[in-house]
């Protein structure tokens, strides 16, 4: 009697855990399927190459794609080198001690700050204080600050995975610390670092709250320089949806975002698979 009760409980528990996994997969596939089903047929050459007309009710999203590329590229160009170098310092130069603990604490804090707060900060600092206005520059640098923790973390992990003997070999040959880092450690850690940068690109594309307070909501024409305002894909989708401007074009924009994230995740997944196999 006791044994059957135990067996039944075991079965029920397993069924519950299996269904949790299946429900979550189901939700994800339902969301992606729904967005792609409704959005893909609205994407065509005109949509990708024309400027929006009537606030986005007509026309395409060409300036918005360009704006997104500008903002994301700028954030990576600034955030990636600083993040990678910070990670090199934390792992190769100052391994222990109070300074490292303090820096780590602040990196964790930065990771916890919500994007709307980054938006407020970017608005106060870049837009108002430095007088850059709503611009690609303000948006890109705000995003760069947001990306720092992700890039530092992934780079640190991949640098730590480089075997200690490699460094010892290099140092024994008379190479300096920086030569060892530059010629041995970084090349070995490269796939992991690139994975981190790709994930950073994904994060930058996904971000909306911080961007719309710093890069602005205008930008329906192609930006000419980094001092022009820009509207990113996420901000465009937000405006189309929140103001109920055009759901067909909102679906198409959402589908483009989903496809971009699918590609980015696939690339990051393949790359990190390569690392573990090595």
């Amino acid at each position: 009697m006791m044994r059957t009760a135990v067996k039944i409980e075991e079965k029920i528990a397993k069924a519950v855990f299996w269904s949790a996994g299946i429900i979550i997969l189901g939700i994800l596939f339902f969301i992606i399927f729904h967005i792609l089903k409704e959005g893909l047929f609205a994407i065509n050459w005109e949509f990708l190459t024309e400027a929006p007309r009537e606030m986005g009710r007509e026309g395409g999203i060409f300036p918005i794609i360009i704006g997104t590329i500008y903002v994301v590229a700028l954030s990576i160009a600034v955030g990636a080198p600083i993040g990678i170098m910070a990670a090199v310092f934390l792992t190769e130069y100052a391994k222990k001690g109070k300074l490292v603990r303090t820096i780590r604490f602040f990196v964790e804090t930065l990771a916890a700050v919500p994007s709307i707060i980054f938006g407020l900060f970017g608005f106060l600092f870049f837009v108002i204080y430095l007088g850059w206005g709503w611009s690609i520059m303000s948006g890109g640098l705000t995003l760069a600050c947001m990306l720092l923790p992700i890039i530092i973390r992934t780079t640190e992990e991949s640098i730590k995975a480089v075997p200690e003997s490699y460094r010892e070999g290099s140092l024994a040959l008379g190479a300096t610390r920086w030569q060892t880092v530059y010629k041995i450690v970084l090349p070995c850690a490269l796939p992991g670092i690139i994975t981190g940068v790709i994930l950073g690109i994904g994060r930058a594309i996904s971000e909306a709250a911080a961007v719309f307070l710093t890069a602005g909501m205008a930008g329906l024409i192609v930006p000419e320089s980094v001092w022009d305002p820009a509207r990113t894909l996420t901000v465009h989708l937000f405006i189309l949806a929140s103001e109920g401007i055009c759901f067909e074009r909102a679906y198409a924009t959402a589908a483009i975002l989903v496809i971009m994230i699918l590609i980015i995740n696939y690339a990051a997944h393949k790359l990190s698979g390569m690392i573990t196999r090595k």
């Binding site: 997969l25 996904s206 949806a241 959402a254 975002l257 994230i261």
Partner: peptide, 19 residues
């Protein structure tokens, strides 16, 4: 399931909101 969950973390919040 694990890559699917990573993908779930990557989808923009605006897309979730729109859905």
């Amino acid at each position: 399931i694990r890559p699917a969950i990573e993908l779930m973390a990557g989808i923009p919040s605006v897309v979730y909101g729109f859905w």
